[in-house]
């Protein structure tokens, strides 16, 4: 049997580094997601990375940081290039290659969503990972459709009393699931064992698989480097980031945190939110509660049926 048939956890995780020697910022959530994913997926992978942070930090000839086969795609073309790689191997009778994509929130939910939708629709055999740092970080912190409500970015600045981003995060996970995808999950870099489990679960399915991993960016969020992992965990404990899976046609939500931790604490430690008034924070809490209400209703319905 292959390596993959053994369960990989923090104790059995490979020491081989397949994303190494890059120049990502200290405390970069995105590069941690890529590094861990490739350790789990192994060397028989082809990594597709669009123009963006990960290609900017890991792909500068002759300093190339991927230990597995890898390629930069066009910004809009992560999934379409993956489709081509999948088709190319299939046509040549090769079926043991993991084709994995790592695209950011802008590369996925904005410019790349057409190609992603097409790939899921065709059920092309690939694993697409969206590392979500909630803005266009490589170009210097501009708003994307996954920037949360209230976050200041350079194109949604909190100046002269403005709130920052005025739109909510696009519901990428449900959009992806609505295609009837084989497997989809959310994760965070604050819970790597959970991410590893989901990577392996994704690998147990064929067809298109998708993981949306929250990956805080200390520079873009205004965090202390050493707080990056803790903030990712707090996104879950505040109930703002929802851990979930979708497979066999059904949603499976992570445990309700019970009592949510304080949104105020989560928000105040990030410079992108410091301008928010108590009133705006209440609005964020209200939106969160509505989302959970919807989830609880769905889960109960599922239990009844």
């Amino acid at each position: 049997m292959t390596e993959r048939s053994k369960t990989i956890n923090v104790r059995t995780l490979s020491d081989d580094e397949l994303f190494y020697g890059h120049k990502a910022c200290p405390g970069c959530g995105g590069s941690l997601a890529v590094r861990i994913a490739l350790k789990v997926l192994g060397k028989k992978s082809v990594a597709v990375i669009p123009a963006g942070c990960m290609s900017a930090v890991g792909f500068n000839f002759p300093q190339l940081s991927f230990g597995c086969n890898s390629i930069i795609s066009t910004f809009a073309g992560t999934a379409s290039m993956m489709t081509g790689i999948v088709a190319g191997y299939k046509a040549q009778g090769i079926d043991d290659v993991t084709v994995v994509g790592f695209a950011g929130d802008g590369g996925t939910a904005d410019i790349g969503i057409q190609a992603l939708s097409g790939a899921i629709h065709r059920n092309d055999n690939m694993l697409y990972i969206c590392y979500d740092n909630e803005a266009y970080m490589n170009t210097g912190i501009q708003k994307s459709s996954l920037t949360p409500f209230g976050a200041a970015t350079t194109t949604s600045p909190a100046v002269d009393g403005a709130i920052g981003s005025l739109s909510d995060k696009k519901n990428l996970f449900e959009i992806v699931a609505a295609h009837g995808i084989s497997y989809a999950a959310t994760a965070t870099v604050g819970d790597l064992p959970d991410f590893m489990r989901k990577l392996q679960k994704a690998s147990s399915y064929r067809g298109t698989r998708f993981i949306h991993i929250l990956s805080p960016c200390p520079l873009g969020w205004g965090l202390k480097t050493e707080d990056m992992v803790e903030v990712a965990r707090e996104a879950v404990s505040t109930g703002l980031w929802i851990q979930a899976e979708f497979y066999d046609g059904e949603f499976h939500y992570g445990k309700h945190p019970g009592t949510f931790t304080d949104v105020n604490h989560y928000v105040r430690r990030q410079k992108r939110f410091v301008h928010l008034s108590d009133e705006v924070i209440k609005k964020i809490e209200k939106a969160r509660d509505e989302k959970w209400l919807h989830i609880n209703r769905y889960t109960k319905q599922l239990e009844r049926s």
């Binding site: 390629i71 073309g77 088709a87 057409q114 097409g118």
Partner: peptide
């Protein structure tokens, strides 16, 4: 041949490039 119904011309060529990177004729 693998006949791929892509979602746009941008994807058509992006897909062909990806396939070419596996050594396939596209």
């Amino acid at each position: 041949a693998e006949f791929v119904h892509v979602e746009s011309e941008h994807s058509a060529l992006s897909c062909a490039i990806g396939a070419s990177a596996t050594g396939a004729r596209t």
